[in-house]
Write a protein that binds this DNA or RNA. Structure first.
Lengths: 336, 336
DNA sequence: ATGAAAGCGCTAACAC
DNA sequence: GTGTTAGCGCTTTCAT
């Protein structure tokens, strides 16, 4: 049951058992075989607590995300777990509920230094807020924020993505652009950066950005979208396109537009971000930006792994940008 | 940083520090105050690995679910994490991907006995398959299965729920009942039990169960539902009601019916299970069964907690049934 | 290539 | 009430 039991059974010392377990090079083939047989015979299983105490590495990493109720994060979590498993890491999921305090707590070390590293998707605190003195050594930031952070950083190019969506809408002849959950000077970087992409595309096309069309949302979820849609429809000249913070907002907006008898995309086109599976099944299916989440997860875990190695702590911070793809569906283009 | 450091700082022994940390009764108010001051001054944080090694309790519990990509499980996970936090437990999420092997592995002890207990939602193995010799001591089964298991068991009354849905549909004048992902003799208990409820309601009403209307699905998700819907529509006499395994299937079915120009609920009524948030936003909104997931989570964690106490291991297995509620929406009843 | 011994930070008996 | 002592099972120098 313990290593020493296995050692006794195999007629070797505990150290040799440990060597076998860790694929240590200097073990004779003969000894290795005997030890492995005993391992199996006794049904040995490491005690991870003991290993962690002795080695000062726990085998856990934390993934701190706003919440699992957003399918985007749930999917991300799944990919991170898969990527982590490749390095024999177990993932602890921490829901920050978009609380800045909880996000900071995670950066500080998450309670009781029981993780070898942290992957944090900040939502309420901006990159700039994560000043260097707070930076946990083994921290990877996910996000769309600027390159100011001193930590490793795996990000999407959300400005470009937003620009592409808007260019697509412009190509469909749209001119009155509204947003849901996307605003300048938003508490969340993610909102602000989408706004920047919008402006870039509109400025290039000479189409004005009209502030009465820019609606903030208390939370970026389906139920919150409905009221904002009502406000847009109440305007003297309603928009003919709505750019939504993410697909949850898009889903809520589509439902409300349908209730109100507005035809999508004829009257108003709608687009979102994240490409949730649901968006293939909404009425109509929702045009969205798809991120390469598997790549994102692999990169995050990879950075953590690199830093956890000997000398890894000295590596300079790396910024990685992962790809995206605009998925056009019938919420922006009528089926011919 | 360590307890002994705190002890030195406060001028007491490590044991006293430990006593303070554990709210041990016999500590003088004065000593307690001094130790707590030192705790704060030195920024002490327990080393959970050391605590786990010494106390033989890790502070972790595992939640084994098919996958986070189903919002039902994501929501459940959130509730379990909240309930666990009340007992200072940290939740390890294990995705079984509905693999019977992985589910069994979890029951066997989940890798490296690093959890104080396991909450398992079996999907591929039936309750009967979990024979006693496999039963982990601290195991709580979530499910709709029978009462045969020898472990603690927190369950919904899915038979009654299915019966209620069907009674509701019968009251709307429906007579030709189809199913998606619901069949007799299904590998999954969950499917079979829904079927049982269907039969009970139909038998009582004298409405026949027609086997050509019962469609199995490879997986209970949105994409899988479309093809099965096509098959139903191709029948000489299509159904006028579809009972879906869960809301994901319902969502996929609604999308396909819409594409095919079938009016819901006029031509065909559709109902599901789980009451995903999405179901309030589908076109039309989906009638569904809502479980009290928070209660479910609290009960599961509560059983684990009871068993983890001294003498808790001797407690007899408990079976708890949590409530449900039929949420009627426009997929079964036209807005007047 | 293998063994001996120390110690990771904490908890739990038992003594005082 | 508080201190002393002895491990928990593993890794890690350092010998051999």
């Amino acid at each position: 049951m313990r290593q020493s039991d296995v050692a006794a059974h195999a007629g070797v010392s505990a150290k040799t058992v440990s060597n076998v377990l860790h694929d240590h090079p200097y073990v004779s083939a003969d000894t290795r075989a005997r030890v492995e047989a005993s391992l199996v015979a006794l049904g040995y299983r490491v005690n991870l607590s003991a290993r962690a105490l002795a080695s000062d590495r726990t085998g856990f990493i934390a993934l701190a995300i706003p919440g699992l109720d957003n399918p985007y994060y749930a999917q991300l979590a799944g990919h991170v777990m898969d990527a982590a498993a490749e390095h024999d890491w177990i993932v602890l999921i921490e829901q920050t509920r978009s609380s800045a305090d909880l996000e900071r707590a995670v950066v500080h070390g998450g309670g009781a230094r029981l993780v070898d590293g942290v992957i944090l998707q900040p939502d309420s605190i901006s990159q700039a807020d994560l000043s260097d003195r707070f930076a946990h050594q083994n921290l990877v930031l996910i996000g769309e924020g600027g390159a100011t952070a001193s930590s490793d950083h795996v990000t999407t190019d959300v400005v470009a993505a937003a620009r592409e969506v808007v260019e697509h809408l412009l190509a469909q002849g749209r001119t009155r652009f509204a947003t849901l959950g996307i605003q300048p000077h938003d508490r969340a970087d993610a909102s602000e950066l989408r706004y920047r992409g919008l402006c870039q595309a509109l400025d290039a096309a000479g189409v004005p950005v009209r502030s009465e069309y820019l609606k903030g949302l208390p939370r970026s979820r389906r139920p919150e979208a409905a009221e904002a849609v009502d406000q847009l429809l109440a305007l003297p000249e309603p928009p003919d396109a709505i750019l939504c913070f993410n697909d949850l907002v898009g889903s809520g907006a589509l439902a409300r537009l349908r209730e109100r008898g507005v035809d999508v995309p004829t009257d108003i086109a709608v687009a979102g971000f994240d490409d949730n599976e649901e968006s293939r099944f909404t009425a109509p299916p929702l045009t969205s930006v798809s991120w390469d989440l598997e790549e994102l997860a692999r990169r995050c875990v990879g950075r953590l792994f690199a830093r956890s190695r000997p000398d890894g702590a000295d590596l300079p911070p790396v910024r990685t940008v992962i790809g995206h793809r605009l998925v056009v569906r019938e919420s922006t283009v009528s089926r011919s």
